[in-house]
Design a protein around this nucleic acid. Structure first.
Lengths: 252, 252
DNA sequence: GAGTGGTCTAGACCACTTC
DNA sequence: AAGTGGTCTAGACCACTCA
């Protein structure tokens, strides 16, 4: 293992063993460089590793602070799309956030979204993006983006409206002959894009949980792809598991 | 945005637009450095970014190859623990792999596992680790680790056996009075540890999907934590969603 | 042996924050 | 103004793989 990874692993171990407790400052670069007998630049690279793991954060002028580890918030997404009489919600947990619309317009979709929508990566689609804020302190929790093929927007112009909201899209689609919709969810792990990093106020290079919800009509046409992005260092998805029939029999 | 990130974004865009198609080689560092008008070192950092996104891979002597993007394999984990008459399986997909045991022994558990097990991070626990191989080509797909508190192993010595396997642990636990077990799953995104990187033959710094299965007995005692790690650049978890009752009514 | 990526060192400057 | 992290350049060497 090269020195910079070795050093990152050592400091990580020291943090977990409370040599550097949560909230404390690491020694500054020049001190660490002397301590490990390497150049300051090598320390810098090691600290990069720790930052992308969400373990520490560099604060200019101050130093490098040790963040609270394992502060994962558990999110129970469930696997039920909820209907409240007029609009749908992909999970009941999204009810607990305050949505703040940021962008509505025509853009190119990310490659995986384009694939799910069945459009070319260079085609424009309608994008509606919003931040999910914590109602308590307005902190940014998740980023939600809805992608609609332009052909569908021409067919149902009301989808173009800025204030239609997330759940409302599905209601309008069903009212216009795309009923009943069925949904699929893909969950993955990846590194945040620079845009996501900025919007969610995360350090650069952190892993994120990406959810892609696909709404398909009975004709098999993909009507909508909604992407939810949240920091992997702050959130985890939790589920309760059931037993199958034979397992139930086996229990006394 | 600093130059090295700008360059990484530019090359990433060029790859997606087939300037550098999948399987092709990027120009060598010195050429890219000239092309972008920066030092070779800056190119190196940009390529680091692309490698941790799983987009390219550096091959010594050869050059930097463009990997197949979006080759995500969709895994349907389900939410049912299956019983086959003698042992349990946390998901039916695990049946499709060939498990190869690697480590059995006493070790310290990772901090999040220790938290779930309710033991101190410095306590030793019994670890049983195995690689899940693709039966077709023996390639390494996932890493599965089972953690058991030592107190439980003293109570049920058969758990110490090396060949008990993953599903068998739950059967033995239920036979010894911890019945019926109930399971919870946590899913998260994080950066691979160096050990995982090596065992799964991944490039350094890739994001991984981490699953933590917790088995709890009726007394509320956590008996077992099983961790599944898979590359975020290769896998995605897929689910089909259902509608709630009111949504069903709304459909024609 | 030669060519490529991977990494380290040394020195420098910038950006930001606090004083 | 000063001090910290963030980044760039220049030059060097190593490790690995192929010819």
């Amino acid at each position: 293992m090269p020195p910079f990874r070795e050093i990152a692993a050592t400091i990580s171990r020291q943090i977990h063993q409370d040599v550097y407790p949560e909230g404390s400052m690491l020694p500054k670069r020049s001190i660490l460089a002397d301590a490990f007998g390497v150049d300051e630049n090598t320390i810098s690279r090691a600290l990069d590793v720790l930052q992308s793991q969400g373990l520490v954060r560099g604060l200019r002028r101050h130093g490098t602070i040790v963040l609270k580890p394992l502060a994962h918030e558990l999110i129970d997404l469930g696997s039920i799309v909820e209907f409240d009489g007029s609009s749908y919600r992909l999970s009941k947990v999204f009810k607990t956030f305050r949505p703040e619309p940021t962008i509505v317009g025509r853009r190119r979709a990310p490659a995986d979204v384009a694939r799910l929508l069945g459009v070319d990566v260079d085609d424009l689609v309608l994008v509606r993006e919003c931040l999910m804020l914590d109602p308590a302190d307005d902190s940014r929790r998740m980023l939600a983006s809805t992608y609609l093929p332009l052909s569908l927007v021409e067919e149902i112009p009301v989808l173009r409206a800025g204030d239609i909201g997330d759940g409302g899209t599905y209601g309008r689609l069903e009212e216009h002959g795309h009923s009943p919709l069925s949904w699929t969810r893909e969950a993955g792990a990846r590194v945040a894009t620079p845009e996501e990093t900025e919007q969610l106020a995360m350090p650069l290079g952190v892993p994120v949980i990406g959810l892609l919800y696909t709404a398909t009509d009975p004709q098999g046409r993909v009507c909508d792809v909604t992407s939810i992005v949240m920091s992997g260092t702050r959130f985890r998805i939790v589920d309760k598991l059931a037993r199958n029939e034979r397992a139930k029999e086996a229990a006394p």
